[in-house]
Amino acid sequence: MYFTSSTEWYEQASLLLKARPSTARITSKYTVLKPTSSKIRKRQKYASKRAHSTSAGDAGNPTTTPQPPAEQDAQAPSATFTLKAYDPVSGCCLKYETNKAAEVGRLIASLGRLGKHMAAMKEVTTDFSVPAGNAGIETPAGGDSDVPMVDVGAKGESRGDVPQKAATGGGGGKKKKKGKK
């Protein structure tokens, strides 16, 4: 099954790893595909429709309507990055897919945390008492400041799980989590 948020995926995957640490595996796939002809047609249609509607909107109230984006080349290949946690014994399969480059650092960092689970390192503690997606729902939509923060988390991983979580959480979630630990 596919998850819509990466934090949710991470939580479920780490639960799966807890249940089956020696059989579960995590596969991630980075794939680049040329669009099919129908996809190209769809894109062209969407682009023309979009250009039309925004120009109409601009005539109405030019201030609030966002500018049309730099048009995506209809022929451009699309790339995706898919995370999959799979346990062959129970047949459980958890998936998360993204196409955003900004998320890769964060996702690999979570793979690293899961890797620690796999390695059965003692200091790994994951706090599931925090409601799912409390801070996580906001993070995917987070601003530019998000990426460097994740980097800091990945490098400062030696300090354990807490700073990284706080780093990815950002904003209000930070205080709350620090208080809990």
Partner: peptide, 23 residues
């Protein structure tokens, strides 16, 4: 593990150039 994943993240970020950049 920690050192490895830090490098791993760098390698993947560099390698997955096809993904969408933040516009």
């Amino acid at each position: 593990i920690e050192e490895f994943y830090a490098r791993y993240a760098e390698a993947c970020k560099a390698g997955m150039s096809g993904l969408k950049k933040r516009d």
